[in-house]
Design a protein around this nucleic acid. Structure first.
Lengths: 337, 337
DNA sequence: TTGTATGCGTTATCAT
DNA sequence: ATGATAACGCATACAA
């Protein structure tokens, strides 16, 4: 049951292991005879090189680690796809870890990936710098994607959180909304923090109501979006517009509105973060803050490869685009007071 | 820049590499003194064992491969999550591959995973038996999930495709629909084939219209769902109900209906395959054929571990459940002719 | 062009 | 309880 090794191939081909290795990796000079014999023997025996042994000898594993908080979030699923396809173009296998929005699982995956000697790491991290840097103290080239960790001086590819949220708030206040409810992401993530800060700044800037009870702290999962919507709609003086900080929380929040027979659009304006196809199917379709996820994943890989090559790539911030749809219609009752 | 090895730890602790190894893997007997010294040295140096070297020496890698056709499909994203979490419980790392609904990428990932010497493989395959078995000719314990490959005698965890589709067709005909449009999955997958066959059988069974033009062959991606809807709605004698064979094609199809101002429910009954949360947000919410994806992923891991342990686990078929929602209302115009 | 010998980092064997 | 040594499978430096 032991799998065939290069020695078996060499023996069958009547050459030394070294020659077999040379033929199979196609590097050094080999004779036509040797090539034929070795190739035939390898095919006959179904030889498959042992990647472990190879990467023990070389120093690279041709493997990158991708650490994501939640694959079930369509944004990260798309990101995973983009990263994996791009890495594949360069001959890298993507080792995928799902932290499940949990510190502990994140740390444990980080540990495993470093043990696996991935050539590089792409992570959408959470938590604090000393935590992470303790783990990956310059051990391996790393790029942050979507999220960053303050104080960790690493290249990153992120979205313009601030601009996206500001656009959304401006759009809503321009429509006449003075009380905008905000379902925030967890403050243990940079995106959660930045977006909340941007919301507060934009509210202050546009003169909308800065009532602290208009903010609900969620956790980027659907259920917390539902809880947030309930909290905000139950307020004595409920908001006339809702803004949720990611797609899953948006789904939860919209579900609650439907339950209550609140018509999104006429009764309540709604802006979602991240553009997922299903949002265009709702009636009305949701206004969203959109990003080029594909570019994000692609760039993350490119930056990582540059880093692996010894360069010091610049971080990239991708633009956010507000896509206005039916969920944020002009208010019928006229202009803001 | 070379990472610290067990020899460095041994030297710092003033013991041999063998003793250091014994302490760190906690197997054999060691003295208290040795344990303390080695642990301290390892911590000080930030020693992280090289998994490559370890699995070269042992025969296992504590790694399983998961080969999926498309992470961006919410069904497979959920499945990936379930598999990964379950594997993790048993100390296995999941090596994840996205075949992108492409034979070629599937084969290439299979090759890489076998080279990486995964201890087992969970795959939602496509294509033909000789193709796959050529690749994984008993080399590694394997379990099929969701899809199977005919002729490959391997344990599998699948859903009751036939029952799910039959329920849906019966439900629609009971409502009075005689012409049911079907957007099928690719016939290179077992699920695509089984579901189409089930549709045909159920149509014959219930006496609905067996017009071959009511079937459109899609590819499990959103765009083909849209194309299918257009094709079917443009028929001279269009169907009064639509059934799509997966969630992404459902999304594409619903988009087309919206574009055309066709009201799902009143104007056109709709049943989607797979229950994704966003479907409950539509107005009306979609009737779906649902499955317990989490159980599917979990079971796939359990079967695989059994196989790795040398057992011969039985295949499992999970039930399908028809969840009736607003997209398939009773027809106002009375009973079928 | 080819073979021999050595080492990658770890653990199992066999002494002591 | 511990140390020296060999071996896992592969790729390369060096010799021939």
């Amino acid at each position: 049951m032991r799998s065939t090794t290069i020695k078996d191939v060499a023996k069958a081909a009547g050459v030394s292991a070294a020659t077999a290795s040379r033929v199979l990796s196609g590097h050094s000079a080999t004779s036509e005879d040797a090539r034929q014999a070795v190739r035939k023997a390898a095919a006959d025996l179904g030889f498959r090189p042992n990647a472990q042994a190879r990467s023990l000898r070389k120093t690279s594993t041709q493997t990158i680690g991708l650490l994501l908080p939640d694959v079930r979030n369509p944004f990260f699923a798309d990101l995973a796809h983009a990263v994996e396809q791009r890495a594949r173009e360069f001959g890298y296998l993507t080792l995928f870890g799902n932290a499940n929005e949990s510190q502990q699982q994140q740390d444990s995956y980080l540990d495993v990936m470093l043990s696996q000697r991935v050539d590089g790491l792409i992570a959408a991290p959470q938590g604090e710098a000393r935590h992470l840097t303790g783990l990956l103290g310059g051990e391996v080239p790393t790029v942050f994607v979507d999220r960053v960790v303050d104080g960790a001086e690493l290249p990153s590819v992120t979205a313009d959180n601030t601009g996206g949220i500001a656009d959304a708030v401006r759009h809503l206040t321009a429509l006449g909304h003075a009380r905008i409810g905000y379902i925030a992401g967890p403050q243990s993530t940079s995106t959660g923090r930045e977006r909340l800060q941007a919301y507060r700044a934009a509210v202050a800037d546009t003169g909308a109501d800065a009532d602290a009870s208009l903010v609900y702290l969620g956790d980027f999962q659907s259920a917390s979006g539902a809880a947030g919507a309930r909290h905000l709609l139950d307020l004595p003086n409920p908001p006339s517009a809702l803004l949720a900080a990611d797609s899953l929380m948006s789904i939860g929040a919209v579900g609650v509105c439907n339950e209550r027979g609140l018509a999104i659009g006429p009764d309540l304006a709604f802006v979602a973060y991240d553009d997922i196809e299903a949002f265009t199917l709702l009636n009305p379709a949701l206004t969203v803050i959109a990003h080029d996820v594909h570019a994000m994943g692609r760039l993350a890989v490119d930056l990582l490869l540059a880093e692996i090559a010894g360069e010091a790539p610049e971080s990239v911030v991708l633009p956010s685009t507000l896509i206005i749809r039916g969920s944020t219609p002009p208010l019928p009752e006229g202009n803001p007071a």
